[in-house]
Computed example of a mutant assay.
Amino acid sequence: MREILPRLLWIGNARDARDLNQVLDLGITAVIDLAREEPPISYPREIVYCRLPLIDGDENQTVVLQTALTTVARFISADLPTLVACSAGMSRSPAIVAGALSLVHDFPFSEALQQVAAAGPCDVAPGLWNEIQQLLEKTEPGS
């Protein structure tokens, strides 16, 4: 699991998301599960669990992709300790976290992804990159 914002935002893989002891020990109170190919996770009632299944290609439902971005952005803005996880923690979760940081801090998606990549390896699928970039361009003021 990689900490992106101190005590506030982490990126992980499916195994990290299933490690309930680690999730609770870190003080994580919300988990965004993006892994379409993994089964849902059962958490205690006090954990907010959002399953928003995405793929690494360019065929995601726009509303699901947009919900993932805005939910993570809202949790960051509300200082809600959040884990964003996908199967390997290398494409979908870094891309969604970068997109959410771009929304919260109003800077380009590419810069946000560089910030996320500084915390560990990333391999964002080009189709997903393009989908997020196009969606973020539509949400910019004046667009």
Rank of each mutant, 00 (worst) to 15 (best):
E3Q: 11
L5C: 02
L5H: 00
L5Y: 00
P6C: 01
L8G: 07
L9E: 08
W10A: 06
I11E: 07
N13M: 05
A17K: 03
L20C: 03
L20I: 14
L24Y: 01
T29C: 12
I32T: 10
D33R: 06
L34T: 05
L34A: 08
L34W: 12
R36T: 01
E38V: 00
E38R: 05
E38M: 11
E38W: 03
Y43M: 11
R51F: 09
L52M: 13
L54Q: 06
Q61N: 11
T62F: 04
V63G: 02
V63E: 15
L65R: 03
Q66L: 11
Q66A: 13
T67A: 13
L69I: 04
V72L: 07
R74E: 15
F75G: 01
F75P: 00
I76G: 01
I76N: 05
I76Q: 04
S77V: 02
S77W: 00
A78P: 00
P81R: 05
L83P: 02
A85V: 00
S87Q: 10
G89M: 09
M90D: 05
S93N: 08
P94I: 02
I96L: 06
I96G: 06
V97H: 00
V97A: 04
A100Y: 07
H105P: 00
D106N: 13
A112T: 08
L113E: 04
Q114H: 08
Q115C: 05
Q115K: 11
Q115I: 11
A117Q: 13
A119Y: 06
D123S: 14
D123V: 03
V124H: 02
G127P: 10
I132R: 02
Q133Y: 09
L135S: 12
K138W: 04
K138C: 09
E140I: 10
P141G: 09
S143F: 10
S143I: 05
